[in-house]
C-alpha cells in the first residue's frame, strides 16, 4: 500500500450507508469513480440484490463476477460486483473445502437456501466476508484494488449488518464461520475501513444518520464522513421578501407584475425560507456529532455519468 492511498480518503474499504432514498448508491458510485482517478482501480460492491449499480450505469444486471463498469480519465477503472449470498456460500465452500460437485448437490437439496435463510447472521458474514476478501486480495504482492466501495444496506439495518460477530455468536461458538466473522469484525474496526453515512437535509434521514452513527460508534466500527446529498445553493440570504420590492424588481426585469405572479413568487420564496430554516437546524444537528461533513450539490440533470463525475470530483476535493 502507501503510494496508492488517497490522503483525503485514507481508508481502503469505504462502506456507504444512508436512509432509503438519500442516494447512497449514487454517492457510492461517485466515490468509486473519484477514487479511481489517476490510474487507480476500484471495486464497487452491492449486496442486497437490488441491481442498483446496473441501473445507475444503465447496463445489464450484474452477474456474480467483478466486471469493469466504468473507465476513468487517466487510465483508472471501476469494476462492479453484485454479491449474491448463495453464490458467496458456494464460493466459500469451494475455496475452503473444494466441494465443487458437492456444492451443487447442496444447492439441489436446498441447503444453500436453507443456510442463508434461517441464519441472517450467516448471510451477512458471507456478504461482508466477500467484501473483505476483495479488499485484501493481492496478486504478486500488489493489491488488486486500490479501494473497495460498498453500497451497504440502509441505516436501519447497517448496525446489524456490520456487527457480524455478534450475530454469528448467537448461532455458532466454533468453526470456520466464527473465524471468518472475527476477521471481518476486526477489519471493520481498523483504519482500513470507513463507514460513510449519506443523508438529505430532511428530518427523517438526519435522524437516522444520527442514530446510525451512535449505533456504529457503540460497536467501535470505524466511522468516516457524513455526506449531505442534494444540497441546494443558498438563496435569499437576506431572509426577507416584500411584495412591494418584488413588484419593483419584476417591473425592472420586464416580467408581469400582476397580483398572481407577485403573490405566487412571494409564497414560493416563503416556502423556500421555511425549508432553509429547517435545513439550517438539521445542519446544526449533524454538526453536533463532530464528524467531517461534505455537501454534494443536487444534480439538475440526474445521476447520469456526467452527474456522477461531477459528484466524484466534489468528493475528491473535500
Amino acid at each position: 500500500m502507501g503510494e496508492h492511498v488517497n490522503s483525503r480518503w485514507p481508508a481502503r474499504l469505504h462502506v456507504v450507508t444512508g436512509k432509503g432514498g438519500t442516494g447512497k448508491t449514487t454517492v457510492a458510485a461517485a466515490l468509486a469513480l473519484g477514487l479511481a482517478a489517476g490510474g487507480r482501480r476500484t471495486l464497487l460492491v452491492e449486496v442486497e440484490g437490488r441491481q442498483g449499480i446496473a441501473q445507475l450505469f444503465e447496463v445489464e444486471p450484474l452477474p456474480y463476477k467483478e466486471l469493469r463498469i466504468a473507465q476513468v480519465a487517466g487510465g483508472g477503472e471501476v469494476r462492479a460486483l453484485a454479491v449474491d449470498p448463495e453464490e458467496a456460500l458456494l464460493e466459500y465452500l469451494d475455496m475452503f473445502y473444494h466441494l465443487g460437485a458437492a456444492g451443487r448437490a447442496l444447492r439441489k437439496v436446498g441447503a444453500i437456501d436453507f443456510a442463508t435463510t434461517i441464519a441472517p447472521g450467516l448471510r451477512d458474514v458471507l456478504l461482508t466476508g466477500k467484501v473483505k476478501e476483495a479488499t485484501t486480495r493481492s496478486h504478486d504482492g500488489r493489491r488488486i484494488y486500490d479501494a473497495v466501495v460498498l453500497d451497504a444496506p440502509p441505516t436501519g439495518r447497517i448496525g446489524r449488518f456490520l456487527n457480524v460477530t455478534a450475530e454469528t455468536a448467537k448461532l455458532t461458538k466454533v468453526g470456520p464461520i466464527k473465524t471468518q466473522s472475527e476477521g471481518v469484525a476486526s477489519l471493520l474496526r481498523s483504519p482500513i475501513t470507513a463507514v460513510h453515512v449519506v443523508t438529505l437535509l430532511e428530518e427523517m434521514p438526519v435522524q437516522e444518520t444520527l442514530d446510525a452513527i451512535a449505533e456504529l460508534k457503540a460497536l467501535h466500527i470505524s466511522l468516516g464522513r457524513i455526506i449531505v446529498n442534494g444540497a441546494r445553493p443558498a438563496l435569499l440570504t437576506a431572509g426577507k421578501v416584500t411584495k412591494a420590492e418584488l413588484k419593483r424588481g419584476l417591473a425592472e426585469a420586464g416580467l408581469p407584475v400582476d397580483a398572481a405572479t407577485v403573490n405566487g413568487l412571494a409564497a414560493e420564496a416563503k416556502a423556500y425560507l421555511t425549508r432553509r430554516d429547517l435545513e439550517e437546524s438539521l445542519r446544526g444537528e449533524l454538526a453536533e456529532v463532530g464528524r467531517p461533513t461534505i455537501e454534494l450539490p443536487l444534480l439538475p440533470g440526474g445521476a447520469d455519468r456526467a452527474g456522477l463525475d461531477e459528484l466524484a470530483s466534489e468528493l475528491m476535493r473535500a
Binding site: 421578501v241 418584488l246 419593483r248 424588481g249 425592472e252 426585469a253 413568487l265 420564496a269
Partner: peptide, 21 residues
C-alpha cells in the same frame, strides 16, 4: 434569464427559487 438581468438581489433570488421549483 430575468434573474441574471436584474441587479435587484431579492427579486433575482426569488426568481431563482421559482426556476429551481
Amino acid at each position: 434569464a430575468a434573474a441574471a438581468a436584474t441587479d435587484q438581489q431579492m427579486t433575482a433570488d426569488a426568481l431563482r427559487v421559482h426556476a429551481a421549483l
